[in-house]
Computed example of a mutant assay.
Amino acid sequence: MMRNVLIVFCLFFISAGAVALKPKKLFNGRDLSGWKIHGTEKWYVEKGTLVCESGPDKEYGYLSTEKAYKNFILSYQFKLEANGNSGVFIRSTIDGTKITGWQVEVAPPGSSTGGIYESYGRGWLIKPTPEDEKALSPDGWNKGKIQVIGDEVTTWLNGKQMVTLKDSKIGSGNGAIALQIHSGGGIKVRWKNIVINELP
């Protein structure tokens, strides 16, 4: 009898964990449902991919989730089609085109893709090594992953762990996930397979 109770108890927690880790697509491949555009730069869907592209104003632009996410594992693919200065923000809030939060960099070679930057605050918090940056494909599809648990953030690029950082300010943050397009013009980046696993 006790053995049966223990089995049921274990199955309950396994089931609960499976629910917590159930992946959810943030981008459906058809439209921008679940997202909000900030600024005048271009965000559109083309052939099942999400495209961010500089508009005539050549300013900062963001595409944020309508929902806030605290602890999660986020995976995504991106392709740098033209001067891909972009990024993925975590626990972010946006007022106009001014963002508060932390950016996992997406950028051309030699520009710290996978590093963590705090906008309108402390600036660069941590950068990957030049050797690790070689994991970036400058003209093909790349696989990014971000794990955020409490005050710890870890990033990966094409299966390579890029950085890990523990920071109390990040730990106290809360907000949306947001994709960025940098100011300056001439930028175009494609995204696909944006999937989140929410964690307790």
Rank of each mutant, 00 (worst) to 15 (best):
A68R: 00
I149S: 05
G173D: 10
N71V: 13
F89V: 06
N71D: 15
W35A: 10
G175M: 01
D132A: 13
G101Y: 01
W43Q: 07
A135H: 04
D151A: 15
L125D: 10
F72P: 03
W156M: 05
A82E: 07
G121S: 10
K98I: 05
V106K: 01
G101R: 00
R122G: 07
K58A: 11
K145F: 13
P109I: 06
E105R: 07
G121M: 06
S75V: 07
V104N: 04
Y117L: 02
S54M: 11
G123S: 08
N83C: 02
I94D: 04
M162H: 05
S75L: 03
G121R: 12
G55T: 13
G171M: 09
F78A: 09
K134M: 07
P56A: 14
A178R: 02
K166D: 05
Y117K: 04
K169L: 08
I90M: 15
E66M: 13
G110V: 03
K58P: 00
E53W: 11
Q103L: 01
L74R: 12
E131K: 12
V148D: 01
S54L: 13
K98F: 00
G39W: 09
I99H: 07
I94P: 08
G150P: 09
G144H: 02
E133R: 10
E133L: 02
G110R: 04
N174D: 15
I170G: 00
D95G: 09
W124T: 08
K166Q: 15
W124I: 05
D95S: 14
K143F: 02
G48V: 08
K79P: 09
D139K: 08
G175V: 02
I73V: 14
V153N: 00
G173Y: 00
Q77Y: 06
S64Q: 11
N174H: 13
I149V: 14
P56K: 15
P56D: 12
T49Y: 09
T40P: 05
G48M: 09
K47P: 03
V88R: 06
N71F: 01
A135P: 01
A135M: 01
G101Q: 08
G96W: 05
G115L: 02
D151Y: 12
Y62E: 03
G140H: 11
I126E: 00
T113Y: 03
D95Q: 08
T164V: 12
K145S: 08
P138S: 06
N174L: 14
T100C: 08
L125C: 09
Q161K: 15
V163E: 00
D139R: 07
E152M: 10
K67R: 05
W156D: 01
G171L: 10
K42W: 03
D95R: 13
T93L: 05
V104Y: 04
S86T: 03
P108Y: 13
Q180A: 07
P138I: 08
W102Q: 09
T100I: 08
G173A: 15
G55S: 12
V51T: 15
